[in-house]
Amino acid sequence: MLAYIVRRLFQLIIVLVGVTIITFIIMFAVPGNPARLLAGKDATPAKIALISHNLGLDRPLYVQYYKFVVRLLHGDLGQSYAVRQPVMQMIKQNVGNTAQLAVAAVLIEMLGIPLGVYSALRQYSFWDTALTTSALVIWGIPVFVLGVFLEQFFWVTLPHWVNSWFGTMWTGLPQTPGRNVWLIFPGSWTSVGALVLPAFTLGILEVAYISYMQRAAMLEVIRSDYIRTARAKGLSERKVVLKHGLKNAIIPVMTIAGIDLGALMGGAIVTETVFNRPGLGLMIYNAIGARDLPVVSGGVLFATLVYVVANLIVDIAYAYVDPRIRLGE
């Protein structure tokens, strides 16, 4: 096990070095001199040269890359062009909101597990067909399309119906995200409301995917020899399904959920944009609009790091529960 972890850690380092090189190349390939951007529109060539010198842009590429990596190791992702604030500080302000959304979405997507198991156990039944078909339809819906329609329904249509039927003045789910959304429960209820719809949007899409995968995994497992053995020795169906079946079939699905959590930490950009919810994704989106490259690349680097580490943890957990992985290669 230890050997496996060491090997994976070593791979992680190689991958991270690759990521810094590619990100560095991408940043360097940017058309337009960053010094000119920083200096403003009517700067003299001397001023541009000075800023360029201060940023180290006149040094050889490998020196610049070395400095870039050294700064990264010190947790310095550079300075935002637009806000004139360290990128790391901006990330710290936003990471909490995004983490909350990611965790909520992953919790919702767990609903896919019982749905998938049910589908597999009643293969080709009416409910299996209905669930599988709707899973495939929902799977293909882009996040922003679902977001726009859910937003319309819960914030406009539903309150309108409720008000006209009951004559009350309900304005729908709270939509202004509170800044203080660090903690779900001790925070204000507004922040919970602002979490519900985005998390539901992300979650429902993943429920479709997870239930489809869980169904496939479960179908494969219940056809295996050890399930036949378990049945043959007279175990109750409940025990066969839960203890022998699900315990094996859930592993690949939990892997997907773990990777999702890592991806959502930085990848909730579309959802956060649709709902205008503060977070890492919205920060990166705004930075793209402002061509604020240090924030874009810093945000992407941070998200990538989280994603890679989440993947590593999932892999190690997988190897822990399934010895074939760690002994395999």
Partner: peptide, 11 residues
Amino acid sequence: AYPYILFVLLI
């Protein structure tokens, strides 16, 4: 290693 949509956005 990159989250896909973010990598596309970066490019």
